Simulated scan of single mutants.
Amino acid sequence: MKITEPTPGAPCWVELGTSDVAAALVYYREVFGWRAETDPRSEAGGYTVMSLGAAPVAAVTPLYAPGQPTAWTVSFAVRDADALAAAVTEAGGKLLVEPRDVFDVGRFAVAADAEGAVFSLWQARSFPGAALFNAPGSLGWVELATRDPERATSFYPRVFGWTAGVHGSYTQWAVDGADFGGMRSLDERNPDDVPAHWLPYFAVSDVDGTAARAIESGGMLLGPPTDVPDGPRIAMIRDPQGAVFGIHSADGEG
């Protein structure tokens, strides 16, 4: 069972904060076929929703804070952003942006777990989040990379109520029996300066073809197309501005 709609505790949205919004809009249109629509209000700060047809699937934004890296941020749906923000700090995490309203669309906060992996909380009002999951061109999986899996396995279930199931050497996150993500360890194969982070994976109909298109459009292949044992075919890509994301076969499992 997988997440098919925004569900409390599960990922509901992803945002790319980038140093070059215009270039990113072109890149992701070429890779995934996304259509861009920028909020014209000055208060929106250039927030751009990316859609497949009429279905919103992600957003692209300028970098809003000094020192903010070009990166994807995963948002998790919550019923009460203020209560979950408090739960984050009680569990040993940190709030980077205190809960605040976004027009009439929802309330959000930005947080980091006990190891520094950044994520957002989203309390929906008029905007629930992505309208498509696990279909080609939409979010299909999220993965936590951390140097302290044991600490993460304590933090996230305490904050969100997740369960952690072990499949071989891989931990998968689930909420109410629905898998939506996993966890891998950052070890000696990763440079010391790679911080703990959340990585979004987008479903695609052809991993090899999408990876080739991503490279032709100016990206870099960090992990070549690979078949995961008892899982999907995956690849890892860095976009021209440096943001990393994964892709996986839309018909793959887990």
Score class of each variant (00 low, 15 high):
203 A>K: 03
140 G>T: 04
134 N>I: 07
216 E>N: 11
184 R>D: 12
171 T>P: 04
146 T>N: 08
228 V>F: 05
224 P>G: 00
176 D>G: 10
126 S>V: 12
222 L>E: 12
199 L>N: 09
201 Y>R: 00
165 G>I: 11
210 T>Y: 02
175 V>E: 11
168 G>F: 06
231 G>Y: 09
190 N>Q: 11
187 D>W: 04
181 G>M: 01
146 T>S: 08
201 Y>T: 01
202 F>Q: 05
148 D>W: 06
150 E>P: 04
107 R>K: 14
133 F>T: 06
179 D>T: 13
123 Q>N: 11
213 R>P: 08
201 Y>N: 01
228 V>D: 12
121 L>A: 12
226 T>W: 04
122 W>M: 03
194 V>Y: 06
183 M>D: 00
231 G>W: 08
165 G>N: 15
142 V>W: 02
177 G>P: 03
217 S>E: 01
200 P>M: 00
130 A>H: 07
217 S>W: 03
226 T>K: 06
232 P>V: 12
115 E>I: 01
125 R>Y: 08
206 D>A: 12
184 R>I: 11
140 G>P: 08
213 R>I: 07
193 D>H: 12
145 A>K: 09
144 L>N: 06
202 F>E: 07
199 L>A: 10
149 P>N: 00
142 V>M: 01
118 V>H: 01
221 L>G: 07
202 F>V: 04
174 A>Q: 14
195 P>S: 06
103 F>E: 15
177 G>F: 01
115 E>V: 04
126 S>F: 07
193 D>S: 08
187 D>A: 15
119 F>A: 02
200 P>W: 03
201 Y>H: 04
116 G>E: 15
164 A>Y: 05
179 D>I: 10
167 H>A: 13
145 A>Y: 14
123 Q>F: 05
226 T>S: 14
165 G>F: 10
187 D>F: 09
236 M>A: 12
156 Y>K: 02
187 D>R: 15
233 R>N: 11
235 A>W: 01
133 F>S: 04
129 G>P: 10
209 G>C: 06
135 A>W: 03
218 G>C: 09
213 R>Q: 12
